[in-house]
Design a protein around this nucleic acid. Structure first.
Lengths: 204, 186
DNA sequence: GCTTTAAAAAGTAAGCT
DNA sequence: AGCTTACTTTGTAAAGC
């Protein structure tokens, strides 16, 4: 009995240490990504839910913690792309994506796809463009999404192309390379999305 | 209007069978021309047929998996070739080994573009998986028939997980009627 | 869970000329 | 700027780690 009792404490302590580690990792990554405290709190809540629903077994704590942070950002409307969270995590993009999908399904998070517009404020401030460019980019996203161009496309690439197009239209040109860098997509992707969006706006 | 069912095309059939005889894969690999066998990497020996095109995975137990065929007839024809090749190596092969189709992959075309965002919400976020950042297709799991459909913005789709060709037809019918009910087609 | 095989869908990426 | 190759997703059996 004494042994069982010790084992329980050992297990409880181990579980407590694991939870503390996960939460500190969420904090570390959240700081590195520069997301507000509300996102860390949402991510922590999701992690505790995953824990109580026994979704961690068979998965790395770091992977689950990163996935919860990714989900938290999206739930708070200030998404970070998988590329971005992967940069501050110790696990790979593929594992994060797979773990995120598993947790979202099991916890019925019912996440809507990230809206490209949600990336515009951050990308634009990183590029130091005017409010005018920002508004124009949002206009381009709305119009081209309405015309059905968004289906299947990555939200970051779509946002990046709209910002690039808007910078040209507002005479505040940013190069494809500059936009590609802040959005973490290739110039080829920007070029492809940009062409379609310009056509959709009737600006070609 | 083209009935989406008429655009269905079987792209890949996976089936399993067995010759009812244990095999020494090392010697089979030596005698069978074009065989790929690397037990360190995978326990099965890979043998490819040319006509019809397919890849057979042959195991020590004598069990065989055939993939890549474009129809159930092709699966049988491919495996007949594999059986004959083994017989040429003086290996006993049962008369007519039972061949079980395990999975059929099909493609089809709904003929119109799809708004995947609207479909994700319409079909219910709890029933679908749509992560355009990770993959451009929307994943839709059906209960009846029990298959998985991947829907794309172009209106093209992939149906997998079925065990008979009719599964794909039933799936396409259900998908079309659900999208029509939601007013998300045309 | 992984390893291997096949095939489609469409988006993204990387390497080379 | 292309073109080619390759990776992402889905499902499935096989034997073994």
């Amino acid at each position: 009995r004494l042994r069982k009792w010790q084992e329980r404490i050992r297990t409880k302590d181990a579980g407590e240490r694991n939870l503390q580690f996960a939460l500190s990792e969420i904090d570390r990554m959240a700081s590195a990504l520069g997301v507000p405290r509300s996102v860390r709190e949402v991510a922590s809540v999701i992690y505790r839910q995953a824990l109580s629903n026994d979704l961690i077994r068979g998965r790395s704590i770091e992977g689950v913690a990163t996935s919860c942070l990714y989900a938290g950002c999206r739930q708070e409307g200030i998404p970070r792309s998988l590329e971005e969270v992967t940069e501050v995590s110790r696990v790979g993009k593929k594992e994060i994506g797979r773990t995120y999908r598993y947790i979202a399904k099991e916890l019925s998070l019912e996440m809507k796809p990230a809206d490209p517009k949600e990336y515009v404020p951050r990308f634009c401030s990183d590029l130091e463009v005017s409010e005018e460019v920002k508004m124009k980019a949002i206009e381009i996203i709305d119009e081209s999404a309405e015309q059905g161009l968004l289906s299947g496309k990555s939200p970051t690439g779509f946002a990046a192309a709209a910002i690039y197009a808007a910078s040209l239209l507002c005479n505040e040109k940013k190069t494809q390379r500059e936009v590609a860098e802040v959005a973490q997509v290739t110039e080829v992707t920007i070029r492809n999305r940009y062409q379609e969006q310009i056509e959709a706006m009737g600006l070609n | 209007m083209t009935d989406p069912k008429d655009t269905i095309n079987i792209e890949n059939v996976v089936a399993s069978t067995g010759i009812g005889q244990e095999l020494d894969l090392q010697s089979v690999a030596m005698d069978l021309e074009g065989a790929d066998y690397d037990p360190e990497q995978f326990p099965g020996l890979v043998y490819r047929t040319q006509n019809p095109k397919s890849a057979a995975l042959i195991f020590r137990s004598g069990k065989i998996v055939c993939t890549g065929a474009k129809s159930t007839d092709d699966v049988h024809e491919s495996l007949r070739i594999v059986f004959d090749k083994l017989r040429e190596l003086q290996i006993q092969v049962n008369e007519d080994p039972e061949i079980v189709v395990q999975n059929i992959v099909t493609s089809a075309d709904l003929g119109r573009n799809l708004n995947l965002n609207a479909i994700a919400i319409g079909l219910g976020l709890e029933n679908i998986e749509y992560e355009p950042e990770q993959f451009p297709g929307l994943v839709y799991r059906l209960d009846e028939p029990e298959v998985v459909a991947l829907l794309f913005g172009s209106g093209k789709l992939v149906i997998t997980g079925g065990k008979k060709p009719e599964d794909a037809e039933h799936a396409v019918d259900k998908i079309v009627s659900r999208l029509e009910d939601l007013g998300l087609l045309e």
